[in-house]
């Protein structure tokens, strides 16, 4: 098991290098000379040359990449053009909000999806099943900006149960924080819940046809154990794959949801950075988002080893 973890973690390094390379190349391809932007009216050929040497821009591109990578891993991520503050500081300041949103959204998705999928599968082609599956189609079809607006309209503006667009940090007041995070988390989580519920239903239907389910019933186990132990654990294996892929969509969706609910996370911040051409910020945003996806997939692989003993011994 620990060997598997180490092996899986070792694969992270080349993938991470690939990400940095793509981000670096993208930055290289942006038209315009940064020296020109820096010097503006003070531009002289001599001054420009001095600055180029000072910033290392006279060196070959591969060398520039290595220098940049070195700064990246030592924590020097540059300064934000907009706020004039260190990029890493800005990112670390906002990251917890986004992480909380992602964790809450995924939790909401699973807490809703698994029971719905299981109940649909054990009562297939009944009114309950049809209603649940119709709702999931709706859930998959609604884009976040629409679903979010709808939830805001109903629960904040009409019913006034939950606050609309403000934020309380988790360190200040947990209860208030959760009240503010509930609608964003649902907006992000419900479409995933819909998709995962359909998947759980299908895998459960597949698994409950297997011989070992008959064997479990023949042993005299209660239907509760047969379904929630013997069938569900097997059905979760294909589900986990899709949940892993969905984390990518979650990160993308977080950008929209944070903007919609005015949450101070890195998603809404990333959008601002792109719109204002704050390149060091955009760069950092791209690296953090893709590394997040990378790490979540390692986590998914670890979940596999817990669910499926056949993987553990590879």
């Amino acid at each position: 098991m620990s060997r598997f973890v180490l092996k899986r973690a070792a694969f992270l390094i080349p993938t991470f290098l690939g990400i940095t390379l793509v981000v670096f190349m993208a930055m290289q391809m942006i038209p315009g000379d940064p020296i020109l932007a820096l010097l503006q009216d003070n531009y002289t050929e001599e001054l420009a040359q001095q600055l180029r040497v000072k910033l290392g821009l006279d060196r070959p591109v591969p060398v520039q990449y290595v220098m940049w990578l070195k700064r990246l891993v030592t924590g020097d991520w540059g300064t934000s053009i907009l706020s004039k503050r260190p990029v890493l500081e800005e990112i670390l300041h906002r990251l917890p909000v986004t992480l909380e949103l992602l964790v809450l959204a995924l939790t909401a998705a699973l807490v809703i999806a698994v029971p719905v999928g299981v109940i649909s599968a054990i009562r297939p082609n009944t009114f309950l099943d049809y209603s649940a599956m119709t709702l999931t189609i709706l859930g998959i079809s609604l884009p976040e900006f629409f679903l979010g607006a709808l939830l805001l309209l109903v629960f904040s503006l009409n019913l006034q149960w939950l606050p609309a667009t403000s934020f309380v940090p988790i360190s200040e007041n947990l209860w208030q924080n959760l009240r503010h995070m509930l609608l964003p988390a649902l907006t992000l989580g419900l479409p995933r819940a819909a998709l995962i519920a359909r998947l759980v239903r299908n895998s459960m239907l597949e698994v409950t046809r297997q011989d070992y389910i008959d064997a479990a019933r023949a042993k005299g186990l209660s239907e509760f154990l047969v379904i929630n132990k013997h069938a569900l654990k097997n059905a979760l294996i294909p589900t986990v794959t899709v949940v892993g892929l969905q984390i990518g969509y979650l990160i993308g969706g977080a950008i929209i949801v944070e903007s919609l609910f005015a949450l101070p996370g890195i998603g809404s911040f990333g959008i601002d950075a792109i719109l204002q051409r704050d390149y060091p910020m955009v760069q950092a945003f791209a690296i953090v988002a893709s590394s997040g996806f990378l790490l979540s997939n390692v986590l998914v692989d670890l979940v596999y080893t817990v669910l499926d003993p056949r993987i553990r011994l590879e």
Binding site: Q210, D211, Y212, D214, A215, A216, R217, A218, K219, G220, L221, K229, H230, K233, N234, I237, L307, D308, P309, R310
Partner: peptide, 22 residues
Amino acid sequence: YRGKQISMIFQDPMTSLNPVFS
């Protein structure tokens, strides 16, 4: 009855044991 007074052995031992439990 099930598993106590009456038990059953299935055809294919490769599929009648649950792969994810010891």
